[in-house]
């Protein structure tokens, strides 16, 4: 191995730091972005992650509760000859201050109790309205093994039904469907949450993105896809998630777009899978029904595969263009 001319890495590091400094001066957006990022992390992370700040991990309200309590037992000092007078004044002052502090402490205690109550309510509200990707894993998810990669027959049939682009494949697996659709000249990308499958896809230099399929769909722009393929992990999602998925997919689809569903029928699962996966996944015929309810013109197409015997292909109908049925299901 011939070594190239040696570069002084220490000098490069200094250059980079100087460049970054210059960039902050020249492009205030970068400096602003850094501040925003810092603020975002401060909002997300528990307080005091840094070495200096850590040490006292009491909650804010606990600290407030501690600080809000006034103590009337303050030493006043004394001087010879005046002790009696001072003692009287001090006693009177003490009783008066004690009266005031008691009033204040009662008020502060009440305020903190209400704040705690509000904090609890806000927490519950946040949990209820959290982004899909931040919510806990839907009940049942993970009990069933992830479905295997689609067979060549499924891949070729799904690609054959793909309409216009861009195409989104949920979940993208190792990218076989993305490749097949790409070969038809349609720009496609997949989303996959299994890192091993993402790794396999990236090895083939495919556009396989990472993350939760529902969250990804939720975050996508409206009317941005010509085709959405629902397959893979979709087989193992609970019905409520699937209904949400159809609702989101119909929003993200262009007016002339289509949805293709390639899933195995849960009725064909073996006994163990049936018992474990009760309530997870629905059959192609139910998919068709749901898509029709969402104003799609859906049909079942046969597929010569041992797992996936039918593929659901759903087009927008004119009725759905009016958006009147969005969010109906």
């Amino acid at each position: 191995m011939n070594s190239p001319d040696l570069i002084d890495t220490a000098r490069v590091s200094v250059e980079i730091e100087a460049e970054a400094k210059k960039l902050r001066r020249q492009d205030p957006e970068i400096a602003q972005l850094e501040q925003e990022i810092e603020q975002v992390w401060a909002d997300i992370a528990p307080t005091r992650t840094s070495t200096e700040a850590a040490g006292d991990d009491r909650l804010l309200l606990d600290q407030m509760s501690y600080l809000a309590a006034l103590d009337p037992h303050v030493p006043t000092g004394s001087r010879r000859g005046l002790r009696g007078v001072k003692w009287t004044i001090r006693k009177l002052t003490y009783w008066y201050v004690r009266f005031l502090t008691d009033q204040f402490n009662v008020f502060a205690g009440m305020l903190i109790r209400h704040l705690r109550n509000l904090d609890g309510r806000l927490g519950r509200l946040e949990n209820a309205s959290r982004h899909p990707g931040e919510q806990s894993v839907p009940a049942g998810l993970g009990i069933l093994d992830d479905p295997p990669e689609p067979s060549a027959a499924v891949v070729s049939h799904v690609a054959g039904y793909a309409g216009s682009g861009p195409c989104l494949v949920l979940s993208g697996g190792e990218g076989a469907i993305v490749v097949a659709i790409g070969e038809r000249g349609i720009h496609a990308h997949g989303v996959e949450q299994d890192p091993d499958r993402v790794l396999a896809g990236l090895h083939r230099q495919l556009d396989i993105r990472t993350g939760d399929v529902l969250a990804y769909l939720f975050d996508a722009e409206d009317e941005s896809f010509g085709t959405i393929v629902l397959t893979g992990v979709v087989e193992t999602l609970p019905l409520t998630n699937l209904l949400g998925m159809v609702d989101q997919a119909s929003r993200k689809l262009k007016k002339t777009g289509r949805i293709i569903v390639a899933v195995a029928d849960p009725a064909n699962r073996d006994r163990v899978e049936k018992e474990l996966g009760s309530g997870l996944g629905i059959s192609p015929i139910t998919w068709r029904h749901i898509l029709e309810s969402a104003s799609f013109d859906a049909r079942l197409e046969p597929c010569p595969d041992s797992r996936i015997a039918e593929i659901v292909v759903a087009h927008r109908t004119e009725k759905s263009d009016s958006d009147s049925n969005r969010g109906k299901i």
Binding site: I44, G133, V191, V198, L199, R209, A215, Y216, D219
Partner: peptide, 28 residues
Amino acid sequence: SLKSLARRLEVIDRVVFAGKVSDKNLLQ
């Protein structure tokens, strides 16, 4: 929190949280 950060910074679909991986996958 990392996932929330990536989502808030709009890079979540480009961050792979690969988890604990086998030696073979680590090498890959």
